[in-house]
Design a protein around this nucleic acid. Structure first.
Lengths: 116, 116
DNA sequence: GCAGTCAGCTTTGCATTGCAAACTGATCCT
DNA sequence: AGGATCAGTTTGCAATGCAAAGCTGACTGC
């Protein structure tokens, strides 16, 4: 146990996860936005069971990070807010998934007691 | 308050995730603890690239939640802290993995599960 | 043997985050 | 017209997460 690769700061999957993306609610938002091309605020709100205030803030975090595009307009006379994933958002989500898969593999392989 | 059609409380995978387990660092701790039967504090610290203070607090969160058992003692004359997953911790980790898998599947299918 | 140093954590202090209640402004109902 | 409802945003506050400082005991030089 000699050669410590100190130039390898962190090889652990969790260190490759981005907190903006990994956060539970935002991961949900990105997932839904990935599945549907364009999502309504209200749909997200009920699909993820959030308060409007909570959702509103998570959206601005995602927008500020450049992961989603937010589009405000009207449906008839009612104001609406739609959400689309940006290319960066799509990449970020894929990256999250890739790291989660690595993590899951580690968990499922290396157990002292493993059972599916 | 309108008793709306909340008979479908939340079918979305992210709502089944436990924030105690899902948090990035703690997910890492649980993963490492799952792979090795018994982990040293110092090992976790370097493996996950954490400050001691940060690790210390995450461990007490996990302990308070009953997910890990913390054991203090000596190795030779040096004080050491070891960590083991409790059965509940193991179950919680498996549950997290199960939900993550559901989530990943949803993402990778990429279908348009549209709205109105 | 007692100052100084180091290993191994814990505690403290503070900035950020996340949540829901309160608010704004427009539309619908009667 | 006046109230109820929809669609979000802003505000206020509690909880979280982080690193720096602090604490405790062991070993080292003198």
């Amino acid at each position: 146990m000699t050669a410590e690769q100190s130039d390898q700061p962190d090889q652990h999957p969790v260190n490759a996860l981005d907190d903006v993306v990994h956060q539970r609610v935002r991961l949900g938002i990105l997932t839904v936005a990935h599945q549907a091309r364009r999502v309504e605020f209200g749909f997200l709100r009920t699909a993820l069971d959030l308060t409007a205030g909570n959702l509103s803030q998570h959206l601005s975090v995602l927008e500020k990070a450049g992961l989603v595009h937010i589009e405000k307009g009207y449906e008839g006379k009612r104001p609406r807010t739609w959400l689309t994933l940006t290319p960066a958002g799509d990449r970020a989500l894929r990256e999250e998934v890739a790291q989660l898969k690595r993590l899951i593999q580690q968990i499922e392989q290396g157990g002292s007691d493993a059972q599916a």
